[in-house]
Design a protein around this nucleic acid. Structure first.
Lengths: 203, 203
DNA sequence: TCTATATGACTGTTGGGTAAGTTACCACAG
DNA sequence: CTGTGGTAACTTACCCAACAGTCATATAGA
């Protein structure tokens, strides 16, 4: 039987993997794990489904690979900023700015770590937890610092405030996805203005 | 053929509908639309799947019914508070308090309106949009008020701030779901303390 | 007997995952 | 400079489980 396209493209595995990860990250990040189909990713990449399974083993394996690639750069950037000497709100703003700059071409990467439709058990949950924890830990550390300065060291308060902070970052990333023409710099300026509106000396 | 249970329960339709809506709302609200299966709802209710289809027509119809029931009370409460004379942060805190009190037994109801796994086209999207808009409009109105007081009337700024505000409510509801022993009153007190930590006169 | 309440058993589709084979290319023996 | 065998890249066609949705039928009570 004639299979006119089998094996004829000759794209090296590593190149193909990068291409697949780019497309998969975008799909997972915008639609969520559950709503993303492997077949759709294959079609967007112009290849067949089995090639993806050959390279990544399973849908979860593919998601994990996306996480590993995206998580590394995001966590490193946040850690870099955490090593600086900014504290409280200032540290928060620096972190936000770092995220905007880092994720300028692909704000959806942020959502990989907090996708509620990802499986909550199995190896993927561990992997998600790893990065979510790594990011969450740093967030919690920053929040705890701020709260301590304000004289509040209640653990549940800190936990709730961390959740709120991550929710704020989340919603800003969502908003950015809905306004793709905004540059990172514009987002940073906008956040400054929002902060001003909250903390400026008005009644 | 023997069907020992068919038609023997004699539960009036309205009672059954309420029971189904209770269970469905909880499942949709905690797992999301996509991850919830009608069969699972039927099993939890101790009835069969066709009865649900008989009463609600489709999975989307069931979701819509959940929305209508939940949306009505949530939107009304927010509107009630909006009619009051609180403005700015104060109005925000009152709204939060109202939500906590209203949703004390079922914080997951909040998530029905902002479920990203719900279909984005068709009648369900309209229904979701209806309530999300109704809630979003009031949020935007409150945010615009606050921003105007601070001298900022930029539309995109207001849009972003509204998104952040809804994200804050969202993350507090999520946190509450993870800490089911907290009472509404405790949540309100906690939010007060978080607000203090942010706006108190510390360095 | 008529109607509301209810069900077991089915269908069709979607989507994750797989088996088996095809094509191109490269290394190397003759 | 040719065959020949191994391997990497790739595909078609399929399997199977989960799940939305349906049909025909059964029970109980007015």
């Amino acid at each position: 039987m004639v299979r006119p396209n089998a094996g004829t493209k000759g794209v090296p595995r590593l190149d193909r993997e990068v291409q697949i990860l780019d497309i998969a990250s975008q799909q997972f990040g915008t639609l969520g794990f559950a709503a993303t189909s492997v077949a759709a990713i294959a079609e967007k990449a112009g290849i067949s489904k089995p090639l993806i399974y050959n390279y990544f083993g399973s849908k979860e394996g593919l998601y994990e690979a996306c996480l590993d690639r995206g998580g590394a750069i995001v966590a490193e950037e946040i850690e870099r900023i955490a090593r600086g000497d900014a504290v409280g709100i200032e540290r928060g703003m620096q972190t936000l700015g770092g995220m905007f700059t880092l994720l300028e071409p692909q704000p959806y990467l942020w959502r990989l770590f907090f996708d509620t439709t990802a499986p909550s058990t199995g190896p993927i949950a561990d992997s998600v937890a790893l990065y979510a924890d790594r990011i969450g830990k740093l967030a919690e550390e920053g929040v705890a610092e701020l709260m301590t300065l304000a004289g509040n060291t209640d653990e549940l308060d800190i936990s709730a405030m961390t959740s709120v902070w991550l929710g704020i970052v989340d919603s800003l990333m969502d908003w950015w996805l809905d306004h793709p023409d905004e540059t990172a710099e514009q987002m940073i300026q906008r956040c400054m203005r929002l902060l001003d509106a909250l903390f400026g000396d008005h009644a």
